[in-house]
Design a protein around this nucleic acid. Structure first.
Lengths: 131, 131
DNA sequence: TGACAACTGCTACATATGTAGTAGAATTCT
DNA sequence: AGAATTCTACTACATATGTAGCAGTTGTCA
């Protein structure tokens, strides 16, 4: 499920705290975002349409609940980036990222940690060369 | 500079081999993409408009040359992903990627390699904890 | 119990995207 | 040279996105 910019904004707020109503989300908009209340509504409606969010009613007030998980959304976003910007090749993308100058030495160490552990625990059960 | 899907497609072909004319690009479209010749043209025109590509004339035939580099494009794409999907935090994104179940043991090893070398070579000159 | 405020469903509208068609100029083939 | 082909510039048009307004309904508080 592909999300647009405003949709990510709303979803991020929803994932942080939910269920939530339009007003609540509206109030938690980052300072830099100065939308009309109705813009939040429209975005929420569209998210419901594409079933990323579920809407429930309590009285006549609608409450929203994420259906799409943050993990799923992130995964999809990365896959898309991977596909168009790196021809689907994971290796080169990681390369690119690993070489990013914004990655500090400490972050690299941390990453190495994660990766090594991952390899120890999941072991050899995963041998494919996902291209 | 944000690129759309068709734009990535064209840019990828252009980066691979350039200068190139519309016809040449048209012919190198991946098999799965069955566009009309004019669709390629329109996309190229739009890329010229947004100055990602430069157009030159040789007689009345136009040749296209990328202006935006692949690296710049990738960087921008990653920054955008980073910003909306990971709240701008590099660490968590790398975390997410490192934990991707589609990452094979070998890819992990490869990554560890890259990261270790990077740390050795660039050494401690980079100590910030970005974010 | 009326005046207001807040909600809700719908509509609006400009720009962006995805995809292609057309007409006329230039080139090429026979 | 006339026909067929290829280019180019321009236009078209449906759907998506970004952003918001409006009218009617409901809740709330003096």
């Amino acid at each position: 499920m592909k999300l647009t910019e405003p949709e990510w904004l709303i979803m991020n707020l929803l994932w942080e705290k939910h269920p939530a109503n339009a007003r609540g989300i509206f109030e938690r908009l980052p300072r830099r975002v100065s939308w009309a209340y109705t813009t939040v509504k429209t975005t929420l409606d569209r998210l419901v349409e594409k079933q990323a969010v579920q809407k429930k009613k309590d009285g006549n007030i609608g409450y929203y609940e994420p259906v799409l998980t943050r993990k799923q959304a992130r995964s999809t976003a990365i896959k898309m980036l991977l596909n168009h910007a790196f021809d689907g090749a994971f290796g080169p993308m990681m390369h690119f990222l690993a070489e990013d100058e914004n990655l500090s030495a400490n972050q690299r160490k941390e990453l190495i940690q994660i990766l090594s552990e991952k390899n120890k625990s999941k072991g050899e059960k995963n041998g494919r060369t996902n291209k």
